[in-house]
C-alpha cells in the first residue's frame, strides 16, 4: 500500500462502472452525477487494471515513487478553431 495518486477525468468518464467493479481495492465508486469518483485512493496498489480497461482513457494512476508530475489535462474543446 502506498500513496499512489488516482485521477479520473470527469469530462471523459462515462460512468460505465468498470473501474469500480473490477478494482481489487475498491478505489472507485460511480457517483450520483454518473461519473467515477476516487473514494479510496490510499488503498490503490497500482495493480494495473483500471488504466487499460477504462474504455474512455479517463483514469490515470500515478505511482508514489514517480516524480510528481502534473497530468496532461484532457482537452474538452471539440474542434480546433479554423484560422
Amino acid at each position: 500500500m502506498g500513496r499512489n495518486r488516482v485521477v479520473v477525468y470527469p469530462d471523459w468518464c462515462k460512468g460505465c462502472g468498470i473501474c469500480a467493479a473490477f478494482c481489487p481495492k475498491k478505489v472507485f465508486a460511480v457517483g450520483l452525477d454518473g461519473k467515477a469518483q476516487v473514494v479510496n485512493e490510499e488503498a490503490c496498489v497500482n495493480c494495473g487494471f483500471c488504466e487499460p480497461h477504462c474504455p474512455d482513457f479517463a483514469v490515470m494512476v500515478i505511482p508514489e515513487n514517480d516524480v510528481p508530475e502534473t497530468p496532461e489535462p484532457a482537452p474538452t474543446e471539440a474542434k480546433e478553431e479554423t484560422l
Binding site: P55, P63, P71
Partner: peptide, 20 residues
C-alpha cells in the same frame, strides 16, 4: 502506470471531439 493513459493521449487527435 500513468504512462498507459498518457501514452494513449500522445496518439489521440485532440482536435477531434472527445469523449469517444
Amino acid at each position: 502506470m500513468a504512462e498507459i493513459t498518457q501514452l494513449i493521449h500522445k496518439y489521440l487527435r485532440h482536435n477531434k471531439k472527445f469523449p469517444l
